[in-house]
Structures are given as C-alpha cells and as structure tokens.
Amino acid sequence: MAERRALWVCGGLALLALAAAAAFLALNIRGNVWFALELRATRLAALVVVGVAVAVSTVVFQTVTGNRILTPTIMGLDALYALIQSLLVLTLGALGYAGLDPRLKFIGETALLSALALALFLPMLRARLDMTLMLLAGVVTGLLLRSLQALVERVLDPNDFAVASAAGFASFNLVHPELLAVGGLVTAAGCALAWRARHALDVAALGADPAVSLGIDWRRLVAGLLMLVAVLVAVSTALVGPVVFLGLLVVALAERLVGTRRHSALLPAAALLAVVVLVGGQALLQHGLGGASVLAVVVEFVGGLVFLTLLIAESRRR
C-alpha cells in the first residue's frame, strides 16, 4: 500500500515537474524564439541540477545524522561561499572578479567547500556523534566566516561591495553552460550512488548500533555518504550560490507526501519536489510575474518558516 502511494506521488510529481519545465520554457516567450529557448534551457538544466543535488544531499545528511531538522548548508557552508566571493572581489577587484575563469572558480570553490564540510562532518565517524556539539561547531564556524566576510566588505569600495554582496545570494539567472556539464555529471553520479545505497540508508536510519548489528560497516558507509553530501552541496553552491532552506522544505514536504522515510520513495520524491519548487517558482516569478521577486528569497522565506514549524513541532512532541 505504502509502495503504491509512493509510486503515485512520484508519478504526480514527475508530471508536475514536466509541466513546470514546459511553463518555464514557454511562458511569455518573445523575440528570437530559438535564442530565448536556448537561454532558458540552460537555466532550466541548472535549476534541475541544483534542485536534485540539494534534495538528495539533504535526505542523506538527515538520515546519517539521525536528525530531521538539519540541512548540510546550515553548517556554515553558505558563509564560506560568501566569504570566498568577498575575498575574490577584494583581491581581484570587481572587474577581475567578473573576468575570472568560471571553470577555475568552480573547481576551487568545490574543493574548498568540500574541505570545510568534511572537516565539520568527519568527527562524526568516531561515534554516533554528539549532534549538539557538531551543530554548535557548524554554527560557530558560520558565525566566524560571516564576521570575516563583514570585515572584508568593510574594506571594499562601494562598487566592489555591490558586486560582492550580489554574489553572496543564490542566483538562478547566471549560469555558465560549461559548469553545468560538470555539475550535472557529478550530481548524476552522486544520485546513482545514493540510489544504490538506498537500502543501506534505510538501515542506517535505525541508528548506529542496530545498523552494525544488521551488518552495516558503519564507519565506511557514513564516511562515504558524508563525502557524497559534501560534494553535492559544494556543486550546488558553486553553481548558483547558497540555498539554505530549500532542502529542508522539500524533504519535509516529500516525507509527508509519500508517508514514509524509506529512501526508495523519499529520494525520488524529494528530488522531484525540489525541481517542481525551483522550476515552477522561477517560471512563475520570472516569466509569469515579470521578475517581481527573486526566487531565492521566496524559497528561503518559506523554507525558514517550515524550519521554525518543525522546530516547534519537535519540541512539543517531547
């Protein structure tokens, strides 16, 4: 029964995602249709890659940490990304920053973000970690990085500052096609790995001791999964910038829709839902309402509300 429900939900979400993609491509299209379509298709691909990467990394991260109100980006990764942007603008100037080879920048950012994520997550391998401690470490790291960024921004001249602060937000409008191919490949590989590990993930959700008892090599599994999360987060952040609450939003909603935490249902549902939210939202805001608002802001706003709701619901249950 549960499986059938999950199938229906995923089917419905897939249809919605297709509809959203069609709307995104076709709404209010004017002028040179082929040129506009090509532009929009690139953005569409970026939105899909980011949505899937964020959803899958959040599901895996929540399962491994045994905590359902966490997303990997809460751990200070967004702050590091913003700091990197500010530092680049500071050292290269706004012009130099704009002229930076996107591929080089992408690789550097991915490497740095992965390194930070691993430094924060790896202590978890020693035990079924002290969640509070890791969360605190992440929040403090984020605070430190944000303060550093504020310091850097104080030194910038106003023009550079404008460039740097715009770069600190997720932007779904400026995507380099050459990055998209790499990011898409990495994300596809990550999804394949997560899908292969779906049954092991179900067992890992029971907790460390039951999982070991059922034959899971806990350290190896968790180390591998956390690397996967780090890379996926780094790719999506480097591609469009930090999206903090999107993962939380879509995973919480997807879990309610499929009614189970089984990964064979939750992984595809969350990924599809993320695509629906991003593509549909962008289609509506950019092409429907003529750029009345920025999707990143809307998603973060709604996602933040969901985060608060989950926090309150969790504390009531205790």
């Binding site: 045994g66 029971l206 907790g207 059922l214």
Partner: peptide, 26 residues
C-alpha cells in the same frame, strides 16, 4: 541492545523486516 530506541518512524512489520537485511540486502 539494552536501550531499544528506534531512531526512525517505522511500522512494526517494517522494523521486523529489517532483521532480514543481512540476507536480502533490502
């Protein structure tokens, strides 16, 4: 184990089904 905390939200049949994981891999 002594403390029987179950981390995830599962039905009893699913939980018992996990006992078969070593044999069937899911």
């Amino acid at each position: 184990r002594q403390d029987g905390a179950v981390a995830s939200r599962l039905r009893v049949r699913e939980l018992v089904g996990f006992g078969r994981f070593p044999h069937s891999r899911g």
